[in-house]
Design a protein around this nucleic acid. Sequence first.
DNA 1: CTGAAAGCGCTAACAG
DNA 2: CTGTTAGCGCTTTCAG
Lengths: 341, 341
Amino acid sequence: VRASLKDVAALAGVSVRTVSNVVTGSASVSPATRDRVQRAIETLNYRPNLAARNLRRGRTGLIGLAVPEIHSPYFGELVGRIVAAAQERSWTVLIEQTAGAPERERRLVEGIDGQIVDGLLISPWSVSAAELRACSAELPIVLLGERDPEGLTDHVAVDNVAAADQATTHLLELGRRRVAAVGLQPHLDNGTASQRLAGYRRALARFGIAADPELEIAVPALHRADGARAMWRLLDGERVPDAVFAFSDELALGAQRTALSRSVRVPQDLAIIGFDDIEDGRYTTPALTTISPDKEQIAERALQCLADRLHGPGRGLPVHRIVVPHRLVVRESTRGMPAGR
Amino acid sequence: VRASLKDVAALAGVSVRTVSNVVTGSASVSPATRDRVQRAIETLNYRPNLAARNLRRGRTGLIGLAVPEIHSPYFGELVGRIVAAAQERSWTVLIEQTAGAPERERRLVEGIDGQIVDGLLISPWSVSAAELRACSAELPIVLLGERDPEGLTDHVAVDNVAAADQATTHLLELGRRRVAAVGLQPHLDNGTASQRLAGYRRALARFGIAADPELEIAVPALHRADGARAMWRLLDGERVPDAVFAFSDELALGAQRTALSRSVRVPQDLAIIGFDDIEDGRYTTPALTTISPDKEQIAERALQCLADRLHGPGRGLPVHRIVVPHRLVVRESTRGMPAGR
DNA sequence: CTGAAAGCGCTAACAG
DNA sequence: CTGTTAGCGCTTTCAG
């Protein structure tokens, strides 16, 4: 059985108050006493009981992180950065997968809200900010990669419209004229896909090109397999595209795989650009051109948001609406064949 | 401020005992009372305080998961599966990144051991099972992807020697005779790399081929960049290999990238096999041959181990030493060029 | 089936 | 600088 504060106090011949002070460092203790206590702690192999401490303090040092899926490279990289940034602030991350299911996302917010986390980062796929908010008025929530039209909740995201516009413009400036968009998700209501579509169309319009429904491909998910299938459809269509803007790198890599396997040369016959800048894209052949959101900053600023709510004035603060920078990274899939190095 | 059990009891005109019974379902309550309580709960928007419950029950429903890095595809996929399997058992996963640093791994075990998790899954890079055990005699620990020579701790892993032998044999059976091994990690002491090296050498020996130090390449980490660099070294060497066994798919993809960029044809001039079966490998061109550990089962059985310790006889159980199956998945990087489909 | 009450281990207000 | 003590919100034993 486990030693408690009281046991340590008894062994050291002091009161629990003093032991607590030594453990937390919250008040000064005379060196002699501290030493005695320290020794007692080691003898008994004492570890403070976090559950008790949490109950008392009303804070847990845990933050929740809810993403649709961890296994995909984008979320994997993002989660990694968030965990690292949280560790720097001595928070521990409690992670949940929502699989994008609406009732899972909602239940999660309700369930997690038992004073077990101090705050929640969530990357919602199907549930709106308003609904999330309704689940829990208390819990500080930061939305990731999602714009919240009503501005009810802190959120940090890239400017998807501008980024998509930039990606499409890049293809158009290369002289491509039949540019497909792969990644519409009419079944979801999280806004990301529709914003990227809007940016795509805006760029086309600026170049005086009419949107062609045949070139706008919807997908059930943003994975490689979906991109591969979408590319099959495009290549089997009437008029084959000469460029593809995929709404995720995974889609792009799947599309590229299909293209190459059908002897469509990339980028000569087909230029491809993705979105996310996952590491795979840097090492495939040809390497993938992409929009690179600043993931480091997404993680950092999201945690900063939470910190502001928790340590700062809290509820009093206005809602943060943070737009994180992105940049276009041009690689071989829109440029030329792999060079000598 | 937040409603507590007492508030609900007051509003419903019953005792806290009854409310508690309704909430946990632990004892039967008359339908009428239950209804009244239920209404009060909703009116006050009551949520049980998990910290208090944990303190009382002595269990938290949280399990810790410590991996060197989440952003790498292999760990990303594994973490995803573990989280999913944990959710099925109503556990929540608390995740930590150790970056493979020895003192981080140790401190983590100590720190996490404050009754805040009921158990811990850890994939150690630098710290031995014995050391981990020493940090905490209480906490149920399951080692992931690591063999524990002294058999002190539950662990689940593939048979790395056999798997590496199989991979190397595959290359040798293709007729390759200068087979490089990329991924030695002499600076780490986690056994994985040395076991794969042993399997590699065993296969060579069986074919009567002497190990060549020039073909055994050490790397600082298992990432694509390391594989790319290793390949440069090999291609710049005296006698170029005709096959590569990389200790991870990431290394393999990095190596492949370098090979292709230097106009070495894969698989004609150089066959490549990886280890892990990450999703990227299925969609690159050429697609990557690999050893596929059953990740699903790793997750499932690791959690089963914990469940046995926590719900079953606990400490009384003998140490589990679980070997998870793997299989060789042959794709284009050791077979032929991408076919028509 | 329900109520009263005793803590779980810790922190912090209060008092020396 | 140190001791005493009142809870944090919940579960659960013991009575009714």
